[in-house]
Amino acid sequence: MSSTYYFAIVGTNDSPLYETELGVQRDESKYLNQFIVHAALDLVDDAQFMSTACYLKTIDRYNDWNVSAYVTPSNTRLMLLHETKADDAIRLFFTDCHELYLKTLLNPFYEPNTPIQSQAFDIKVNMLAKKYLF
């Protein structure tokens, strides 16, 4: 059975900067995935002050789904909706996605806190997902 993951990068003003479904694509669950992840943002805000680490592990659960979070020093949140319990793999995925996001921020043509619409970014996120999550 292949797993489905929903990955989102949420900016400092709680707007989605990037989102994608990784694995099996299911159109009927797209909006539910968005809702679950964005509903967990308040829990991320609470959890980030209880830890000094960027990776906050699983911060919320919805039925069989877990929401894991990673908060950058600039308060950008990387969120992953998943069914698995592979904390080390998810932490490595977040760390590499954070590095990829930083490289995007360094691009002089990218306006901070605007949606990331780069096909190269999509490809690299999918490669990282295959490397760590599948």
Rank of each mutant, 00 (worst) to 15 (best):
V67G: 03
P108R: 02
D122S: 10
T58V: 15
S68L: 01
T12D: 03
L100H: 03
K30Q: 08
T58H: 09
A86C: 00
I36K: 01
C97P: 04
A69I: 05
Q48M: 14
A53G: 04
S74C: 07
M50F: 12
A129I: 01
I36D: 00
Y31N: 06
G11M: 03
K103E: 15
D46P: 01
H82I: 01
S51G: 04
I59A: 09
K57P: 05
L78H: 14
K85I: 00
I123R: 11
Y70G: 04
K131L: 10
D122Y: 07
Y110F: 13
Y101V: 01
P16T: 14
P108T: 02
V71Y: 05
T76E: 13
A129G: 09
D64V: 14
F93Y: 04
F35T: 06
D27C: 03
L81W: 02
L41N: 07
Y110N: 00
T52V: 08
Y18R: 08
A39M: 14
E99Q: 11
P112W: 02
R61P: 07
D42Q: 11
R26H: 13
L80T: 00
D88P: 02
L92K: 10
L17G: 00
L22G: 07
R61N: 09
D45H: 12
V37P: 00
S74T: 10
M50G: 06
A120V: 12
Y110M: 02
L100I: 01
K130G: 12
V37F: 03
P112Q: 01
D64E: 15
D87C: 00
F35D: 04
L43K: 15
M50T: 09
Y62K: 07
N33G: 04
R61S: 14
Q34V: 02
A89N: 10
N126Y: 12
N113H: 10
F35M: 05
V44E: 07
K130Q: 15
V24R: 12
Q119N: 08
L17P: 00
L133C: 08
S74E: 11
L100K: 03
L128C: 07
Y31T: 05
A120Q: 12
I59C: 13
K130L: 12
P115S: 13
A86S: 06
D45E: 10
N107Q: 03
Y55F: 15
D14L: 13
L106M: 09
N113D: 13
D88M: 06
V24W: 08
T20N: 15
K103G: 02
L92S: 13
A53I: 05
D45Y: 14
R91E: 14
L43S: 14
P16D: 10
D122R: 13
Y18N: 08
V125K: 05
H98T: 07
Q25W: 12
L106G: 04
L105K: 06
G23E: 07
A53M: 10
L17R: 05
F121P: 05
T12W: 03
R91L: 05
T20Q: 09
N113V: 04
L102D: 05
K103L: 09
T104S: 03
D87N: 07
V37A: 05
L81T: 00
L43A: 13
A69L: 06
P73I: 11
E19L: 09
V125T: 10
L22F: 06
S51E: 08
E111I: 15
P16K: 11
T12H: 08
Y132N: 04
K57M: 09
V37D: 01
N63R: 14
E111D: 11
Q48G: 01
D42M: 12
L92C: 10
P115G: 09
